[in-house]
Design a protein around this nucleic acid. Structure first.
Length: 377
RNA sequence: GGUGGGGUGACCGAGUGGCUAAUGGUAGCAGACUGUAAAUCUGCCGGGCUCUGCCCUACGUAGGUUCGAAUCCUACCCCCACCA
């Protein structure tokens, strides 16, 4: 349980197999985000059919609504949502970042003003573990302090050091909870440190000292810093990361980010962009980014991406998708969300195959050539 | 036929002498979105140009008053309500 087998490496990329209580995750893999216990707009069967092996839930949001006690009473997050495979819950640490005007950070924990009813909610490293334990995902994440990408050294230091102190507390609480029952959930730490090389190094060192861990996450990236900076952080971190543990780059990314992350040794990704952009009518395709709503698509009788095997592309024309968006039909948002998650899942699977077949560098080069041809960033 | 109300940019609808190419909203067009406070947000939205500005056209139609009119006056056309 909670084991990771590195099955092959090539051109910086890693092909692996992560074994979790609810199933196996072949890596590299993209994990769709289901904040409220649902990948927004999609039926679990659709998410499965798109090839997802593991999805996320969110501690903060599920704590607010419906509350972990309710989910526990209904059999835990898996039974509640009917998602049969592995799940991972984010700790609420990202909400410390994203809900910045609605929270106050103290050493003990973070006080949030609920955006739902204005009530005060406190999340601590310990309570985040208790909530996640009650939710019962395969993987729980440490409660961290995420700072913006432009954070100066002092602030990044504060967030990084606090993340380490909170990690020790969360680890201890999680161990207490886990000691009371059969193993069912593992806890992964999160490396912070912003864009500062020295802080990232210290964060990694401190994190490993608090281990052992069954996996390790890299947080605080794609939060406003330039892309080359993110790449550099990953490159510097790589050599220090245990080879036999999965590496999870949190909150990333766009298609190019997956390719570049994989090339720098990342095994797991998650990102809301697939579903959010999908709801907003923006699709990733092998031909580049497509704005489904564009007027020029009115009479386009072709699939979004002729190379895509998703349920949307197999059946519907862009002309129809555009109509759904213009008419405000929710089906349009669902169909493009579905396409986008399939696109990222297939991208990761293609990369995996290329690594297994030792042609990852060429595969990556070909990807960028196409990327360049279509003028993507 | 009479009386009263009204005709504003694709649509709805503010504006009642200068700060008005004309508030808002809708529709339309384009863009953004990275561990989801997001089915959200931003920009453009009469035409033209030698485009940090200039010119033309525009508030039912035609004329008038005024330095200046979508705003005041006259006539006409059309719409609505009520009365005959």
């Amino acid at each position: 349980m909670f084991t990771f087998h590195l099955e092959g490496t090539d051109g910086g990329g890693r092909a692996g197999r992560l074994v979790l209580p609810h199933g196996i995750v072949e890596t590299p893999a993209f994990m769709p985000v289901g904040t409220h216990g649902a990948v927004r707009g999609l039926h679990p069967a659709e998410v499965q059919e798109a090839g997802a092996t593991i999805i996320l839930g969110n501690t903060y949001h599920l704590h607010l609504r419906p509350g972990e006690q309710v989910i526990e009473a209904l059999g835990g997050l898996h039974r509640f949502t009917t998602w049969p495979g592995p799940m991972l819950t984010d700790s609420g640490g990202f909400q410390v970042f994203s809900l910045e005007g609605l929270r106050r950070i103290e050493e003990g924990g973070v006080e949030f003003v609920s955006h739902i009813d204005g009530s005060t909610r406190v999340l601590t490293p310990e309570s985040s573990m208790e909530i996640q334990w009650a939710l019962g995902a395969d993987v729980a994440m440490a409660f961290d302090h995420v700072v913006p990408g432009q954070a100066p050294h002092a602030l990044a230091t504060e967030g990084m050091e606090r993340t380490l102190r909170w990690l020790a507390r969360g680890r201890d609480r999680h161990a207490e909870l886990a000691a009371e029952s059969a193993p069912r959930q593992t806890l992964w730490p999160i490396v912070q440190g912003g864009t500062h090389a020295d802080l990232r190094a210290r964060s990694l060192e401190g994190t490993l000292a608090l281990g052992p861990w069954t996996g390790i996450a890299i947080g605080g990236l794609s939060v406003g810093e330039p892309k080359p900076v993110m790449h550099e952080v990953l490159e510097r971190l790589g050599p220090g990361l245990p080879e036999d543990r999965p590496r999870y780059l949190m909150g990333v990314g766009f298609p190019d980010d997956l390719v570049e992350g994989i090339a720098r040794g990342v095994d797991l990704f998650d990102c809301v962009a697939a579903t959010r952009n999908g709801r907003h009518g923006s699709a990733w395709t092998t031909g580049g980014k497509v704005n489904v709503r564009k007027a020029g698509h009115r009479r386009l009788d072709e699939p979004l991406d002729p190379e895509c095997d998703c349920a949307t592309c197999r059946r519907f024309s862009v002309g129809y998708l555009r109509h759904l968006f213009v008419a405000g039909e929710m089906l349009g948002m669902r169909l493009v969300s579905l396409h986008n998650i399939r696109f990222l899942i297939r991208l990761a699977a293609d990369a995996r195959r290329a690594i297994e077949e030792h042609r990852f560098t060429a595969w990556r080069r070909a990807w960028h050539a196409r990327s360049h041809a279509r003028g993507d960033a």
